Simulated scan of single mutants.
Amino acid sequence: MPRDIAHLHHVGHVVSDMTRAVELYRRLGFHVPPPSVPALAPREAAAPEPFGAANTHADLARNFIELVTPVEPGITKGLPPDARIVPLQVPADTLPLVLSRIEATSAQLSGWRDRFEGLHILMFSSPDVDGAADRLTAAGVGHGGVNTVGRPVETPNGMRTELVRYLEIDGAPEGRVGVVAHLDPEFQHTRHLEHPNGAQDLVEAVLCVPEGQLPLVRERYEQYLDRPISTEGPVTLLTRADLSDLLPGEVPPALPAFVACTVAVPDIARVRALLAENGLPVRETARGEPFVPAEAALGAALIFREI
């Protein structure tokens, strides 16, 4: 019987300055398009103003790394000049609800950013998000139910709406954790999957937890995944002491915290040469894999694994 959680869908890197973040990820060897930010008119007949959150993706074949930052209403500080402003068309009777939801998301992002700049979002990919919801409910894992949102996508035939179905798990102190339906293959041609570093897949998220909480967190994630945690991913759980063993020199910004993620590449030598050319520091994991430390990567260590 197929599992209802297959692999990672995305991680979310919450940043303070989107211009710096986009520049960093391009130096890391990712193709990163200009970010998008929603805009709404604050009053009738007024020009739309950006607000909520700006985001962009480094897209991979079956998942992505998201860069996201909260945006104060009407303020574009920290956004690159080529950021794409996306005016939202919202009926007047639903405007208050839409505003409250976007403001709540922005406030949550601000809280995470103020806690530390780095990874705060971990979403798993599912071929059956409704089945995953039912299983989690039966296991006593609280969640908000399956939601559906529309994401505007620019295609060769104009703007289209990609429907995204997801659920968020309640009460995860490390950040936003949830399950998302697999990426829609109908829109795959709109994603840029070729990167200078050759990245093909997001294969691991590393979560650092307090020593005494490791068994409970392990049990919690095994409930989420419906299988034992293993060295094959998609989540690696460790304590502060374990972190310094796996990623020498790394210190968690807080506990619990997502401290790193791993991308799969076909040519490690190519990655090493690119990182050196772009002036980024590189260390070695306990497994002999190169990684860019969090202090040089806006709070989230990035590991490269050859496949």
Results as ranks from 00 to 15, higher is better:
246 L>T: 01
85 I>Q: 02
227 R>I: 03
161 T>I: 15
104 A>D: 00
219 E>G: 12
297 A>E: 04
164 V>R: 11
288 G>I: 07
195 H>M: 10
15 V>N: 02
111 G>R: 14
167 L>D: 06
27 R>S: 08
194 E>S: 14
7 H>Q: 15
23 E>S: 13
89 Q>L: 11
260 A>P: 02
127 P>L: 02
118 G>W: 07
23 E>M: 06
157 N>C: 10
18 M>L: 12
87 P>W: 07
230 S>M: 01
56 T>D: 03
188 Q>N: 14
113 R>H: 10
156 P>E: 02
193 L>H: 02
200 Q>F: 01
80 P>V: 08
149 V>I: 14
245 D>T: 11
2 P>L: 14
126 S>V: 07
235 V>K: 11
107 A>R: 15
283 R>L: 14
106 S>D: 05
124 F>Y: 06
256 P>N: 08
106 S>Y: 11
287 R>T: 13
159 M>C: 05
33 P>L: 12
207 L>H: 09
243 L>D: 03
219 E>P: 00
177 V>N: 10
96 P>M: 09
42 P>G: 00
240 R>S: 14
223 Q>D: 05
303 I>C: 08
1 M>P: 03
163 L>F: 15
197 N>A: 15
24 L>N: 04
26 R>I: 02
104 A>C: 04
149 V>H: 11
135 R>F: 12
29 G>I: 02
233 G>K: 06
161 T>D: 05
229 I>V: 10
194 E>Q: 12
120 H>T: 09
146 V>G: 07
198 G>R: 01
120 H>F: 07
67 L>I: 05
209 V>E: 13
122 L>C: 15
53 A>K: 01
234 P>G: 01
177 V>W: 09
301 A>V: 03
13 H>S: 06
91 P>F: 09
78 G>T: 04
229 I>P: 02
186 E>H: 14
130 D>E: 13
219 E>M: 11
279 G>A: 08
170 D>L: 01
94 T>G: 07
305 R>G: 06
55 N>K: 00
45 A>K: 11
239 T>M: 03
79 L>W: 00
164 V>Q: 07
39 A>C: 05
30 F>G: 04
1 M>Y: 12
159 M>D: 08
207 L>V: 08
300 A>H: 04
226 D>K: 09
